[in-house]
Design a protein around this nucleic acid. Structure first.
Lengths: 168, 168
DNA sequence: TCAAGTTTGGGGACATGTCAACAACCACGC
DNA sequence: GCGTGGTTGTTGACATGTCCCCAAACTTGA
């Protein structure tokens, strides 16, 4: 992102290229993301036979009363599109982790419900998953770094969910 | 990840569930990642007609002398698998952004070279992309937060690339 | 020399996620 | 009541990325 090699002369509004610390943070974020996601996904697959999206769905639905949740609410909680939830739930239904049912009171709606297999799967997966998250992220950081990571995320999330409502 | 609802009694080695600040950081990281990636990808697509992987490849190859790089080196720089580079380059070749050629001195090798269209694309895309990165991440953070993000990333990357050599 | 192992790039099958479009349904105004 | 517009979930087409496996070429060591 320091981009001198692209050889710009002068643009209409001069581009503010990233400074060295900014570039370090940006490249670092992207590299961390790539490695961390891959690792956590692999651990989850090896330990429990679940993908990260599988785990997220199971985790969220398992928290709901009756281990049942409306598709729409699931999408809202996870910040997923309805399309994505639909695809994911269909695949998980084929594997016997969840079932889809009708939504009482709204004929458009659909409910996702954990099967016994789904409930067992999330219970079996959770401890190993937490260990993986600790080993590869949390336990590497100081309490101050953990707090700062939370702060950073909150800022970015606030900015981006604000845009959701009023794009600019 | 506080996971009380899963109702564990006592496991063989007790699971250290995440504390409140740890949980905030982990959930925050994941939510930030989802929103930020989506946004930056969308900006890139709208502004320049490129995906993030497209941009990464163009950016890396454009830095090489002669705007040519061996597949293998490209993979190493980006921490991508060779398979991934292969797929990505094939797609980009079909769209006229790069060409594939032989590697002098190693008949197994393949070189990726930017086309004129690829060179134009990265030059046109870079300023908007930097602006997007600033608007949605960098300019939201204090210099201290930027530094800490860099530190965090370095720790995680070091841990995960160490494992690459000696898995455990 | 040459056999065995390593490196390099590619292909197929599959899982994931995006967008665009659609059909069915609800809610609100008149 | 009833049409209009928003909501909800689904599907299809496509892009991306992973894993497993293969073929060709290089390298090493007996």
């Amino acid at each position: 992102m320091t981009c001198q090699h692209l050889g710009y002369a002068r643009t209409v509004t001069a581009t503010r290229w990233l400074t060295a610390p900014e570039d370090r943070a940006w490249r670092g974020y992207r590299r961390m993301r790539a490695l961390l996601d891959l690792r956590i996904n692999r651990d989850l697959t090896n330990d429990a036979g679940l993908s990260e999206p599988d785990y997220d769905v199971l985790s969220n639905v398992s928290e709901a009363p009756g281990r049942t949740m409306r598709m729409n609410e699931l999408a809202a909680r996870m910040l997923w599109t309805r399309t994505r939830v639909s695809h994911q739930v269909r695949r998980m239904e084929q594997r016997g982790l969840v079932t889809r049912g009708e939504c009482p009171g709204d004929a458009r709606g659909a409910m996702v419900e954990l099967t016994e297999a789904g409930w067992s799967a999330i219970r079996a997966a959770a401890p190993d998953h937490v260990r993986s998250v600790r080993d590869n992220l949390i336990d590497l950081l100081s309490p101050e770094q953990i707090a700062t990571l939370g702060d950073i995320a909150d800022h970015v999330i606030e900015r981006l969910t604000m845009d959701e409502r009023k794009p600019g």
